[in-house]
Amino acid sequence: MTPPTPPTPPPPAPSPAAEADKRASFEREALVHLDSLYRVALRLTGNPAEADDLVQETMLKAYRAWHQFERGTNAKGWLLTILRHAFINEYRRRTRHPETVDIDAIEPFSVFEELQDEDPQGTFFDRIVDDEVLRAIDNLPEQFRETVVLSDVEGMSYEDIARVLEVPVGTVKSRLFRARRLLQQKLYDYAVGMGYIKGSAK
């Protein structure tokens, strides 16, 4: 007869002081990025209620994994990676269809070249309101949308974006180039439609 194995003692419950420390450091290092996370979530889901849920879920997951976060490294990038995985696994199917784009099929369009004579200083941009710009971003294919949001809205470096999106830096560069040109084109077409600029007859 084998003697019963002694029960393993339960792990010591974290002291209330340790829990309070964890919450304080999480609040200081992770929750400060709440606005960024929300902006990215909103552009990914296209809907405030879903963005709210996605950010809450991201923060909860991040809190549970907080011991794995290497202090002093890029907390924003770490959080955005968690957010993006949650989005891909749980939200994308429900909200938008993942789009695949033949990047090379997009003809880069330089608004500057169109406007060189009429408005080389780009003053027409001043007349385009926030909502119109957000709509143009939301209508970009997903790969372009997420790249442009991390760069132009959140100001992240190519290397940090590449890490979050899990693609090579060269891919970030080419997506950014095409995404920005696509956006320019949409906003240019809008401005011509509104009569802000004459544009060139095409």
Binding site: L37, I128, L134, I137, V148, D152, L183
Partner: peptide
């Protein structure tokens, strides 16, 4: 153009 994009999109927070 890049400055304009950033300004138009950052107004929104959580």
């Amino acid at each position: 153009f890049l400055g304009f994009l950033r300004a138009r999109c950052r107004a929104q927070g959580a």
